Computed example of a mutant assay.
Amino acid sequence: MREIVFDTETTGLSFSGGDRLIEIGCVELVNRIETGRTFHAYYNPGRPVHPEAFAVHGISDAFLSDKPFFPAAVDALIDFIADAPLIAHNASFDWGFLNGELGLCARDALCTTRMVDTLAIARTRHPGAKHSLDALCSRYGIDRSHRVLHGALLDAQLLAQVYVELTGGRQIGLGLVAETIAVAPVFTNITPSVHRAPRVFSATPAELAAHQAFMGRVKNPVWGISQATVASG
């Protein structure tokens, strides 16, 4: 099963308020294992980045000034994600910006049936706990020491590891295996057990005679005291 974990960075918090997508990072998973294939792109938003957003991701207007506009570069993104389910953290935010950009360049919106929200999964699995990406990395022991600022590809790579943990770790369901390979029967080559006759452990006459001779040399054995002697003592 192919899935795409993705994250976005934007000029601000509201697409309907005029904010735009400026970065997207995607990580490909097949059967919940990273394949090494990624997609990463920056886009010129045609408007300034809000100072509050810049403080989060550090992407400046000057850096974006020579990047392509989204409509000019959208085909590469569409080709990469294809028809795979799309996983994001607080997915409605990223989904809103992505579908907003697709709408502006007259492309079909992505169907929400493809959306998988790791925030919703985390709230179900760990009620009452913190559910930020940082908090989930800490919970699952995922190293994020190299994460100083938010970045779409870096966050997608961290989220891919979190998603695998949230959905059962590295153990892939038998149903997925059965779809791709024939599973051989287990324990078909074991040789049947051979039942042996019970061994005889009785002492031989010679052993009994040697034991009796040894016992005769024991002085005042405790097993030789009579019950009468014990009672009178």
Rank of each mutant, 00 (worst) to 15 (best):
Arg2Glu: 14
Val5Gly: 07
Phe6Pro: 05
Asp7Asn: 14
Thr8Ser: 08
Glu9Gln: 15
Leu13Ser: 14
Ser14Phe: 06
Ser14Pro: 00
Phe15Asp: 11
Phe15Tyr: 15
Phe15Val: 09
Arg20Pro: 01
Arg20His: 06
Gly25Ser: 14
Gly25Trp: 11
Glu28Leu: 13
Val30Cys: 13
Val30Phe: 13
Asn31Trp: 12
Asn31Phe: 12
Arg37His: 13
Phe39Arg: 14
Tyr42Gly: 00
Tyr42Arg: 12
Tyr43Trp: 13
Tyr43Thr: 06
Asn44Pro: 00
Gly46Asn: 08
Gly46Ile: 05
His50Leu: 03
Glu52Gly: 00
Phe54Ser: 01
His57Ala: 07
Gly58Ala: 13
Asp61Gln: 06
Asp61Val: 11
Asp61Cys: 03
Ala62Thr: 09
Ser65His: 10
Lys67Trp: 06
Lys67Thr: 01
Pro68Val: 05
Ala73Arg: 08
Ala73Thr: 02
Asp75Thr: 03
Leu77Ala: 01
Ile78Asn: 03
Asp79Ala: 11
Ala82Gly: 07
Asp83Ala: 08
Asp83Gln: 13
Ala84Cys: 03
Pro85Val: 02
Pro85Cys: 00
His89Lys: 11
Asn90Phe: 08
Trp95Glu: 00
Trp95Val: 08
Leu98Arg: 02
Leu98Lys: 03
Asn99Trp: 12
Gly100Tyr: 07
Gly100Met: 09
Glu101Ala: 07
Ala106Gly: 04
Arg107Pro: 02
Arg107Asn: 04
Asp108Ser: 14
Thr113Ser: 13
Arg114Leu: 10
Met115Gln: 14
Met115Trp: 05
Val116Ala: 04
Asp117Ser: 07
Asp117Lys: 05
Asp117Gly: 09
Thr118Leu: 10
Ile121Glu: 04
Arg123Ser: 04
Arg123Phe: 03
Thr124Gly: 12
Arg125Gln: 12
His126Tyr: 15
Gly128Val: 13
Ala129His: 13
Ser132Ile: 15
Asp134His: 13
Asp134Gly: 01
Cys137Ile: 12
Cys137Phe: 09
Ser138Leu: 12
Tyr140Thr: 09
Ile142Cys: 03
Ile142Trp: 10
Asp143Met: 06
Asp143Gln: 03
Val148Trp: 08
Leu149Glu: 06
Leu154Ala: 15
Leu158Gly: 08
Leu158Lys: 11
Leu158Val: 05
Gln161Phe: 00
Val162Met: 04
Glu165Ala: 06
Gly169Ala: 05
Arg170Gln: 11
Gln171Asp: 09
Gln171Arg: 14
Gln171Lys: 12
Ile172Gln: 15
Gly173Asn: 01
Gly173Thr: 08
Ala178Cys: 08
Glu179Met: 04
Thr180Met: 10
Ala182Glu: 15
Val183Trp: 00
Val183Ala: 01
Ala184Asp: 09
Val186Gln: 05
Val186Ile: 11
Asn189Leu: 07
Asn189Gln: 11
Ile190His: 00
Val194Arg: 08
Arg196Leu: 14
Pro198Lys: 02
Val200Asp: 15
Ser202Lys: 09
Ala203Val: 04
Thr204Val: 02
Ala210Tyr: 00
His211Trp: 10
Gln212Met: 05
Met215Cys: 09
Gly216Leu: 13
Lys219Cys: 03
Gly224Lys: 14
Ile225Phe: 07
Ile225Glu: 04
Val230Ile: 15
Val230Gln: 10
Ala231Thr: 09
Ser232Cys: 05
